[in-house]
Amino acid sequence: MTKGPLEAMSKIKAEEALKEKTWQNIKRRSSLQHPVLKWGGLACAAVCIIMAITFFYPARAEAYSYITLDINPSLELILDQHDGVMLVKAYNKEAQETLSSVDLVGLHYQQALTELMETEGYQQYFKQESLLQISIYSKDEKRSFEIEQNLCNYLNNTKMKNRYNCHCIDEVTHQEASSHHMSGGKYEMIKKIMNLDSAYSIEELQDLSMAQLRDIYNTLSDEPLSSKEHHQRHRNH
């Protein structure tokens, strides 16, 4: 009959030492009770523990917003509902190397971006020809635009102020990019290139930097892409 309470205990998300200590205390106290009441008391106690630990150890926050940054390191900041970074995803080797020297988890996304932009390993990609592509997707469209505005205000005061493109993407684009294991901004650029020249493929383009993709796009399009001009056109809509 002890199986029921033990199974309930095993499902509680708490430290094992805490659960074991609590369980031993329950058994010790129950041994002093009348035998008929003993196991009923254990079951009731297990239910109380579930309720208490569920309150003090809430479920993990769900992903709410996504910010992808692509320059050559290609990475994604995954935010909770309070705009805190709950996970950082690296899409290539350069991103893994960059993230090895900076910890962004737990920071507000604005502080995380500042930390990233000031990291020496990230700054080495701030070359004259570089293009920083940023895409934002949130479950709340208003939140997407708020994040976009905040990021633009910050970037306009950095070395990359004339070499970035920051805009919101929709859920479909976000999901398609994720399914191809790439950032939303890079995925959008690749789609534009493929629409202009179907001879290109995702596999052929996905490992290129944003500057290289921009150069390919510019050779194909009648309207060459300037990061600042494109950014302004988007903001004016």
Rank of each mutant, 00 (worst) to 15 (best):
A8F: 02
I53R: 00
K11N: 10
A46Y: 03
G41H: 07
W23I: 15
A43M: 10
S30K: 01
S31P: 04
Q24C: 08
V36P: 01
A14R: 00
P35Q: 02
K38W: 02
K27D: 04
S30I: 06
L32V: 08
Q33T: 15
A17S: 14
K19R: 12
K27E: 14
M51K: 07
A8I: 12
I50M: 08
P58A: 03
E16C: 04
P35F: 03
E16L: 13
S31A: 12
A8S: 04
K27F: 11
V36Y: 10
T22C: 06
A45N: 07
P5I: 04
M9L: 15
K27Q: 13
I50R: 02
K13G: 06
C48K: 05
P58Q: 00
I49R: 00
R29E: 12
C44L: 14
N25R: 05
L18P: 02
I49G: 00
I12A: 05
W39E: 14
W39Y: 12
E15I: 06
I12K: 00
F56K: 00
I49L: 08
K13C: 10
F55L: 14
K11E: 14
A45G: 06
R28L: 15
A17Q: 06
V36F: 10
I53Y: 11
I26L: 12
I12G: 06
I26P: 06
E15R: 09
S10A: 12
I50E: 13
A8V: 08
L6C: 04
Q24M: 14
W39F: 13
I53V: 14
N25K: 10
N25G: 15
K19D: 09
M51R: 01
I26V: 15
A8N: 04
Q33E: 13
N25D: 12
